[in-house]
Design a binder for these strands. Structure first.
Length: 440
RNA sequence: GUGCCUAUAGUUUAGUGGUAAAACUCCAGUUUGUGGCACUGGCGUCGAGGGUUCAAUUCCCUCUAGGCACCCCA
């Protein structure tokens, strides 16, 4: 393309940006924040209640961390990362997920020297340069759970799953299915992969182009193909569950037994493979069922005993999972879960006239110091407009201060519900309001 | 990253090759210190840029954003 044409296009692109968020990035407006807060609060309270400790890492890490951790061959690293160069020449990436950063922190701060395992949770933004859709954004907020260190015990996998199960339950999300699988370990997975490749090779010419590629680069993903022409091969493909080594089999059995014990229903799904390289053994996903956009993964995770090693650390057992606030919110809205309500304010301050306006901030501050939350619309000067605003906001008590009251050092307390009002001495105002609020 | 669909007030939607309409919301007012109802008025460069045309919100192109499918995932 000629240079000036290219520049022209670039300029046009810049002009169209205008006043809007970049693609896939959303403002959380006050109305949505009620949802947002409900979900993040539930996640946080539950995590603390389950004795997880909060660990927050920076939104940026060295690119290498994700190449080594998440995996250089994964879609996330290959196509979906925001990569930037700093002035000093470092190559950083906005985090596309939490886990590698958490593992890095675990090593950097020697958390292995604290009680094991470390149960850690994080809540914060992650970034993926993906094509957005409803419930899928380029910046979204993950709730991330990790159990790192200690024994390679299936009970930890179960504990992570129990957390998400409870969270989904508390948020009243319906039609959720838990899918479970094991993708084996260093011993049995390579054997299975080879077997899968051998099986698929016979049909190579009949496979879709993606699957031909997968056959070489990432055979487990063959099981994920949704193209019609590949379905019949998928159905007859060897199942990994039959090929697991003895210790992987008993590990999976362990996880499932704990889930049974808890009465948590699941579907064994030998086609469930996850997009990240570091998983081993347990993988799980919570799915919502339904038509179209209501269906999809709302939480997922698994075990990653080799991750620490590929980052250059000592082999450390670890398991975890994540979900996103935005996705949960999307599902809740589509399932018509009742929107959270903000508690209405009870007390509203109204001034009449310049003198009263001048004194208003001070009186309001006195009330606030006494622990009484006071709403107002001091920028409006007409009494009518102020009352109207109070009414619209569902206020119970209006405090009206005018010339006369100012002179008498009193104030009118008007109950907007029954339109009864009385004049109260300013010095007794706090007491009077408390009495009325208590009486409700 | 690829393909398809969409874009009109804050919201939901009309509409037209001659610079726009309704409902709800919002703001102001219907006189002098009292809200809900009613009435009157106000708020739009018809997503952005360019082209065709005497004239473009309307037709064409590009960009941007949103949605859907693929890919992948939360």
């Amino acid at each position: 393309m000629p240079k000036n044409k290219k520049n022209k296009e670039k300029k046009r692109k810049e002009e169209s940006h205008g006043l809007q968020t970049p693609k896939g990035m959303h403002d959380v407006l006050p109305a949505d924040y009620l949802w947002w807060e409900k979900i993040s609060k539930a996640a946080k309270d539950l995590a603390e209640f389950y004795c997880f400790n909060r660990l927050d890492t920076p939104v940026m890490e060295f690119l290498k961390l994700y190449e080594k951790g998440t995996g250089a061959d994964t879609d996330i690293v290959q196509k979906e990362m925001y990569i930037l160069k700093t002035k000093s020449g470092d190559t950083l990436a906005l985090r596309p997920e939490f886990t590698p950063g958490i593992m890095r922190a675990y090593v950097q701060h020697s958390l292995s020297r604290l009680g094991q395992p470390q149960k850690l949770y994080s809540i914060g933004p992650v970034f993926r340069h993906d094509n957005p859709q409803a419930g899928r954004l380029r910046q979204f907020t993950q709730i991330n759970m990790e159990v790192i260190g200690g024994q390679n015990d299936p009970i930890y996998d179960a504990q992570v799953i129990i957390y998400f199960n409870r969270l989904i339950d508390e948020l009243k999300i319906k039609n959720v299915v838990l899918r479970m699988n094991s993708i084996g370990c260093k011993v049995c997975r390579p054997l299975y992969k080879r077997q899968l490749q051998n099986y698929y090779k016979n049909f190579e010419k009949k496979l879709c182009s993606d699957c031909v590629r997968r056959l070489k680069t990432n055979p487990l993903r063959l099981l994920d193909c949704k193209k019609e022409e590949c379905q019949e091969f998928k159905a007859k493909a060897p199942s990994i569950l039959d090929k697991l080594c003895a210790s992987c089999t008993s590990h999976l059995k362990g996880v499932l037994e704990y889930l049974d014990e808890m009465g948590i229903a699941y579907q064994l799904d030998n086609l469930l493979v996850r997009g990240l390289d570091y998983y081993s053994r347990t993988v799980f996903e919570f799915f919502t069922e339904g038509n179209g956009s209501e269906a999809g993964a709302i939480a997922g995770g698994g075990r990653y005993d080799y991750l620490m090693e590929s980052l250059g650390g000592r082999v450390t057992p670890a398991t975890g999972g994540a979900c996103s606030i935005e996705r949960l919110m999307y599902v809740m809205k589509s399932q018509e879960v009742k929107p959270p309500q903000k508690l209405p304010k009870k007390v509203f301050f109204i001034h009449v006239g310049e003198m009263a306006k001048k004194k208003s901030l001070r009186i309001i501050e006195t009330l606030r110091s006494a622990g009484i939350s006071v709403a107002e619309s001091l920028g409006r000067d007409s009494l009518k407009a102020q009352l109207k605003t109070a009414d619209k906001e569902g206020i119970d008590l209006a405090l009206i201060l005018g010339q006369r009251e100012l002179f008498e050092e009193s104030i009118i307390v008007r109950d907007l519900r029954n339109s009864l009002q009385e004049t109260v001495t300013l010095s007794k105002l706090v007491e009077e309001i408390r009495k009325r609020l208590r009486a409700q």
